[in-house]
Each structure stands twice: as structure tokens, then as C-alpha cells.
């Protein structure tokens, strides 16, 4: 552990670091699971992705890719790529817009322009804990696509543990990114 911890004589949970998480991943520890993430030093897993979520992700990816191509943006959407967010956070967002899609290892934080999570059963975690984690890391913009309510929550202006600005768009409406100039996304495919 490289960080300086306060002295404790009572047992406290050890927060895993990104390098610990990657070491376990290389060892094959997570092979039974479809997706794992390191959040605040703890590893989480899921082993299933249900259709509504997979479809929403595909539709949104296509819409983003079309829009970015049309504006010849250097940004590229990637699905399910891990981001080196902090010493103890390596989430795997459903979609991440990065300026550095090529290269080895995790997506570097400085390249991230937008993070999108698709929420079904995960809505509460995505709106609260994940929003706090992304805001704390300074991710400029964060969207949560709520498959059940058919609405996209758009957040930007991160400050400490929260986003200062927020608005919603119903599926079918045109989405305009708040922090990426010129990016508008047609969400008709989601409706």
C-alpha cells in the first residue's frame, strides 16, 4: 500500500487499488463473470445483461457514432471498456467517449469526454454512487439512460461528489451534449 493511512488498531476493509484489480483480472479470477468493476476499492460483478439494456446500448452507440462521424470528431464511443478513473476506481461504463481509443490498457481519464450508463435494475446505483464517483474524478459529462422510464438523465459541471447541472430528455427527443460542442444525438431508435 503506497498511500499513507491513519493508524488503526481495529480491522478496516482494505481498499483495493487499480493495480491489484488488474493483477486479479490477469490471474483469471473474474472469468466466471461477464463484467467486473472496481468501485471505491471494492470489486463488483454481474454475469448477465438482459435484452432491453443491450438494445438501448446498441441504439445509443449507433446514434453517437453517426453524430460524431458527421462532425468529424476525434472522439470515439467505446462500449464496455474500463477507465482508469482514480487509484481505487476502474469502472466499465456501458459507453465511454474517449479521444484515445487506441493504445494498451485502461482508458486514461484525461481522454474521457462523456460517460454513459444504461440503467434498468441499476438505476439507483447509477444515479447516486456512480454519479458521485464520476463527479469526484472530474468526468465532464455523464448520462444515465433509464430503460424503464424511457428517459435520459444528463449531468454536467462536476463539483466534489456531485454534478452541478442536470436535465432530462425523453427517449425520442434530440439530445444535445452540454460539454461537447456540436454534438447532438437522435434518440428515436430508443423510443
Amino acid at each position: 500500500m503506497t498511500e499513507l493511512l491513519p493508524l488503526n488498531t481495529s480491522p478496516l476493509p482494505v481498499k483495493l487499488r487499480v493495480e491489484d484489480y488488474l493483477l486479479l483480472d490477469e490471474s483469471g479470477a473474474f472469468e466466471p463473470y461477464r463484467r467486473t468493476e472496481l468501485l471505491e476499492g471494492e470489486i463488483y460483478f454481474v454475469n448477465a445483461q438482459l435484452r432491453p439494456r443491450a438494445l438501448a446500448k446498441a441504439e445509443l452507440y449507433d446514434a453517437l457514432r453517426d453524430a460524431l462521424r458527421a462532425m468529424t470528431s476525434p472522439l470515439r464511443p467505446l462500449t464496455e471498456a474500463s477507465v482508469a478513473l482514480s487509484a481505487h476506481d476502474a469502472p466499465e461504463p456501458d459507453i465511454v467517449l474517449t479521444s484515445e481509443p487506441k493504445g494498451e490498457g485502461l482508458i486514461p481519464l484525461h481522454s474521457v469526454a462523456l460517460v454513459i450508463e444504461i440503467a434498468d435494475t441499476t438505476l439507483s446505483g447509477d444515479m447516486k454512487r456512480k454519479a458521485a464517483i464520476y463527479a469526484r474524478a472530474g468526468v465532464a459529462e455523464y448520462w444515465v439512460t433509464d430503460v424503464s422510464a424511457k428517459v435520459i438523465h444528463q449531468m454536467w459541471a462536476p463539483e466534489d461528489d456531485a454534478y452541478g447541472q442536470q436535465r432530462e430528455a425523453a427517449f425520442g427527443q434530440r439530445m444535445t451534449a452540454a460539454t461537447i460542442a456540436g454534438l447532438t444525438v437522435e434518440t428515436g431508435g430508443l423510443a
Partner: peptide, 17 residues
């Protein structure tokens, strides 16, 4: 399991770390 669950480290993981 589509709602994230905490991964329980195994003895082998602990030893590796």
C-alpha cells in the same frame, strides 16, 4: 445477476495480492 454484487475475494486472490 444483472445488479452488481460485491465480489468475494478467494484465498488464491488474497495470496496473489
Amino acid at each position: 445477476i444483472d445488479l452488481p454484487r460485491a465480489y468475494r475475494l478467494r484465498v488464491a486472490d488474497y495470496r496473489l495480492l
